[in-house]
Each structure stands twice: as C-alpha cells, then as structure tokens.
C-alpha cells in the first residue's frame, strides 16, 4: 500500500535534463499525462478554440516541446513550473494563430494516447466558460487531472490488494456528492460495522492522497515548488 508520504522522486526538470533518452522520454510522458488535460481545457475555455483546433494545438504543443526541448529551459526563480507551462501554451497558441490561423499537428510524435473525446465530454459536462483568471483556471484543471489520476491509481491498488469494498465505500461517500449517505447507512448496506466503514474509508483516502502526492512530485519543477504545492493542496509540511 502507498504510504502517506511519497517515495523520493526527482523533479520533472531533473528527469527531462537526463542524458538517457529513455528516461527523458518517460519523464516527458509523465509530464504530458499530468498536463495535457489542463492544456486542452485551457485552450477550449480561455482561448475559445473549437474542439478540433484545441486537440491539434495540444498535440502540437507537446510534440514541439519534446522536439525542441524548451520546457527544459524552465527557471525556477521566475515562476512555478505549472505557470511556466501555461505561459508556454499561451505563446504557442498565439504564434500558431499568427502563423496560419489554424494550428497544425506538430510532427508525428505521439507520446501518450490522449483521449480527447473523453476530455471534450468533460468540457461539456463542466460547461466551461471563459475564466476570469487564466492562472486560477489552469491550476484548478491541473488539480482535477492530478486528483483524477490519484483516484484511478487508488482504485487499481484496492483491486490489486483485494479491497474493492473499501473503494466502493469511497465511491459512495466521497465521489458521489449527491448521495448524502451516512457511515451508519453504509455500514448497514455493506454489512459492516461503523468502525469498519471508518477504517476502510480512511485507508482509501490515505491511498488516494499518497498517489496524488506521488503524481504531484513528478509534475513540479523543483523540490521547493513541490513543498509549496503539497502545503497548499494537502496542508502538509514536507521535509
């Protein structure tokens, strides 16, 4: 089971700057996985792009970033890595508009499979409107993507360890905001005691949190940034 604190993991910048091509590619894959959804939704909401244009530009942005390695030019003293990514996207979108009025799919490199159909469903479900503050919006979507991955990982871990009931409880109590159920009602429904419900839920929440922290670690530019993000998101002081 994942512990409350993630194992030591290098920052995304350190990994992107490695000489080992395989390690660099894997790091980029992690980065894309963590950022492509916020980037896509940012282009849809802030830049008011059509789904097709936003898909093309998202793909082009990451391909270009990998080929030209410009995300590695990140300077920690100036801004958080997340802000840096968002500013790069804005510049890329502006340049693309000026160049052709329609973004082109950049290169042929497909780092990870990006499920744009699903992302578009989310955009529609959330009824995204132009945000008042692009940075806040980007952060919010970044956290949504981070938490979504952590929930998926937590489910996988619970399945792997034969604790699917634990995850079902988590789904009912924490992932279904319309279901105003109680621990007592869940205990009756699942044939458990209230103490068991409390402990099972606690385990899944800890697992979710641990996976979110692991993912966060891989998406921050520096250790300092990771500490700040962890403090803001989890109220944690990490040494």
């Amino acid at each position: 089971m994942a512990s409350a604190f993630p194992p030591t993991r290098h920052s995304v910048i350190e990994r992107l700057r490695k000489d080992d091509a395989a390690e660099r590619s894997a790091a980029f894959g992690d980065l894309v996985e963590g950022y492509w959804q916020p980037v896509y939704k940012h282009l849809r909401a802030t830049w008011r792009m059509t789904p097709e244009d936003a898909q093309d530009l998202t793909q082009a942005f990451f391909s270009d970033a990998f080929q030209k390695a410009w995300l590695e030019k990140y300077e920690p003293g100036k801004a958080r890595f997340r802000t840096f990514v968002r500013v790069c996207v804005d510049r890329f979108a502006m340049n693309s508009r000026q160049a052709s009025g329609r973004a082109k799919r950049g290169g042929d490199i497909r780092l990870v499979s990006l499920d744009f159909d699903r992302a578009e469903q989310e955009v529609r479900a959330l009824a995204l409107s132009a945000p008042a503050d692009a940075e806040d919006f980007f952060r919010h979507e970044f956290v949504r993507s981070l938490f979504g991955r952590a929930v998926t990982e937590a489910r996988a871990e619970m399945e792997r360890t034969g604790r699917l009931v634990h995850f079902r409880l988590f789904e009912r109590y924490d992932l279904d905001p319309d279901d105003h159920t109680s621990y007592a009602a869940l205990a009756a429904e699942f044939g458990l005691t209230e103490s068991q419900v409390t402990n099972y839920l606690s385990l899944v929440r800890r697992t979710f949190r641990a996976h979110a922290l692991i993912a966060l670690r891989g998406l921050c530019g520096t250790d300092d940034e990771y500490r700040r993000e962890a403090r803001e998101l989890f109220g944690l002081e990490i040494e």
Partner: peptide, 17 residues
C-alpha cells in the same frame, strides 16, 4: 484512464486531501 471529477467531487477531495 483518468477518473473524471465534477467540481463538487473536487471540492470534497480537496477537503479530504
């Protein structure tokens, strides 16, 4: 596949986190 989280669920998980 990343689990989709609505704004309400996000608020809940941010509190839980």
């Amino acid at each position: 596949t990343v689990t989709f989280l609505s704004d309400d669920v996000m608020s809940r998980l941010q509190a839980v986190a």
